[in-house]
């Protein structure tokens, strides 16, 4: 009898304990100092990866027969603004990519100028933060080529991508550091699977930064800005999802 009571009490205790743990975790997740500690995990992962692995390592490239039969879209499918609709209506002939910030020569590049630059094509795996993966082929000039043409200042530490799409009225943007910006596979893709980029995949140009998760691959890129600090852009955390929901800025994890 007493044994049964003890067990019952224990099981109740365990259930309450488990509930308490979840509630406790929620309290910690919302508390300042504890939250900061938890968020330092991102820095430790980035530091370990950068210290223990080759910074120039290439993401795997696949053969054409290994590609996903269907590559789903995600996030914005269409920026839906008047300006963007005007670009679409004449096949992005009037669209220009601005390159400015900490550069010697700000650029304004047309789609045909981007297509005329040396090209890189790669069949890579796209990993969404949600867990799914899709393999597709991407083509465009290397970001390094564009940055070299603009003459990046030695003060620049981050490259920011300002996009045409908005969510809840807030413009999408993303940022990467110079290690990823000058990585050989980091390209401004205007073609996907041997065809011009579709609207849902970020036409006319999206960033490919192959060693990070999908939300870093900014779609509908309008402006590339070189900066010394991410403070003052958006809410200062380096990207739309980083600002809105505290996603990791370093998404190589």
């Amino acid at each position: 009898m007493s044994l049964i009571l003890t067990r019952r009490r224990l099981l109740t205790g365990l259930a309450v304990g488990a509930g308490g743990l979840v509630a406790g975790c929620d309290a910690i997740g919302n508390n300042g100092t504890a939250r900061d500690t938890l968020f330092r995990g991102e820095d430790v992962h980035r530091a370990l990866q950068r210290a223990l692995t080759d910074r120039a390592a290439l993401a795997r490239e696949f053969r054409p027969e290994q590609m996903s039969p269907y590559f789903r879209t995600n996030g914005s499918r269409d920026p839906g603004t008047v300006d963007y609709a005007a670009y679409v209506s004449n096949g992005f002939a009037d669209w220009r990519l601005q390159v400015d910030g900490l550069v010697a020569h700000p650029l304004s590049l047309s789609l045909s100028q981007l297509k005329a630059m040396p090209q890189r094509a790669q069949i890579t795996r796209h990993d969404c933060v949600e867990g799914w993966s899709a393999i597709g082929k991407w083509q465009g000039p290397r970001l390094a080529t564009v940055l070299d043409a603009a003459g990046l200042s030695s003060r620049a530490r981050y490259i920011v991508f300002h996009c045409a799409d908005r969510s809840g009225g807030v413009p999408y943007y993303e940022s990467i550091d110079l290690i990823d910006a000058f990585h050989p596979q980091t390209i401004l893709a205007w073609a996907m699977n041997d065809a011009p980029l579709q609207l849902g995949h970020g036409a006319p140009v999206r960033l490919r930064v192959e060693r990070q998760l999908g939300y870093k691959h900014a779609k509908y890129v309008m402006r590339i800005e070189a900066v010394a600090s991410l403070a003052g852009i958006g809410q200062g955390k380096g990207g739309f999802w980083e600002d809105r929901a505290a996603y990791d800025w370093y998404a190589g994890i």
Binding site: C25, D26, T37, F39, E42, V129, D248
Partner: peptide
């Protein structure tokens, strides 16, 4: 789940730490 309501970003923060 941790957290108790849907929050992928915070779930990842817990998991990766």
């Amino acid at each position: 789940t941790i957290p108790a309501t849907y929050n992928l970003a915070l779930g990842r923060r817990w998991h990766l730490f």
